[in-house]
Design a protein around this nucleic acid. Structure first.
Lengths: 153, 153
DNA sequence: ATCTTTCTTGTAATATCATATCTTGTGCAA
DNA sequence: TTGCACAAGATATGATATTACAAGAAAGAT
């Protein structure tokens, strides 16, 4: 986690490269627009709404980018595990590990909005299994925790 | 579950009574409007949006009930554990057991919308504990599973 | 009984999130 | 060149959620 502390920019580039690989593996193209949306999304340190991203890309490119274009791309991203949707926030996060396929857990601070990501396959599998035990076929577990982060108490 | 099959109406009344008790215990009044919203909510067998409820109450009372009034009341209901919000649906369900304080799990069918409720304290506690282990103070876990119900495969 | 305070609801406007449809652009191949 | 498939733009609209303020109803004090 703390390693490569002096290669932050490379982390960004490596992240985009990983995203590109993952998106292409799912049969989609890595266009300029998609790269721009990903860059923007990855630039937020909190979940970003489609409109946040549309605005950011609009500013970066000095032209109006409409929200529906962003939604389209975010849908591709989530399908390809390149981005994640935080349901309780109606917002999106870049997935820092697009290669690992986890049901992830988000901890969302109600005060400052800080959202941290957490993988715990044992818990997630437990949730899936509980669903199955009720005859339900689980496809996408949504596990989020609203509360307060360390800083906000 | 199958018991009292010939007392369906009483179940409804008993449910309202329990909701009233729970709401009053949390220091709120059980007004006609709140009763109407609860009745309406409990009448849906799938998660209902605030607008669904506004429409249903409007029809029942032959007057226009605005969504924001419904939102206000739903906020009270969720705070008092009388209703639950399904985050991944932007919709609400009546809580059939307002007395039991569980972090509950919803299984939502992507096909037919059927949503079933499930309590599993062990899992929920695991989620809370995982949050705590990251220095996060968990207040409201959101555990939902999107997928397909038995009927829809 | 009336006044005052507090709580509840109504009304309207607006903000935010999401999708639908139709058009335009672009790369590629027949 | 034409036709095709995919991506993106433009516009409109639908769906969800919040805010501000006014009007009404209920509870308690005088």
């Amino acid at each position: 986690m703390a390693k490569n502390h002096d290669h932050v920019m490379h982390e960004g580039e490596a992240l985009s490269a990983a995203a590109q690989t993952a998106l292409e593996r799912s049969g989609e193209q890595w266009t300029k627009m998609r790269a721009a949306v990903f860059e923007s999304l990855a630039g937020f340190d909190q979940p970003a709404s489609a409109y946040d991203i549309a605005e950011a890309v609009s500013n970066a490119q000095e032209r109006r980018v409409a929200a529906n274009s962003v939604y389209r791309i975010l849908d591709l991203f989530t399908a390809a595990n390149v981005a994640r949707r935080v349901e309780s926030e109606n917002a999106y996060l870049a997935n820092r590990h697009p290669d690992c396929l986890h049901d992830c857990i988000f901890l969302v601070c109600d005060e400052c909005g800080k959202t941290t990501h957490l993988d715990n396959d044992k818990l997630a599998d437990g949730v899936r299994e509980a669903a199955r035990s009720r005859g339900f076929n689980p496809e996408r577990p949504v596990i989020e925790v609203r509360g307060h982060c360390e800083k906000c108490g």
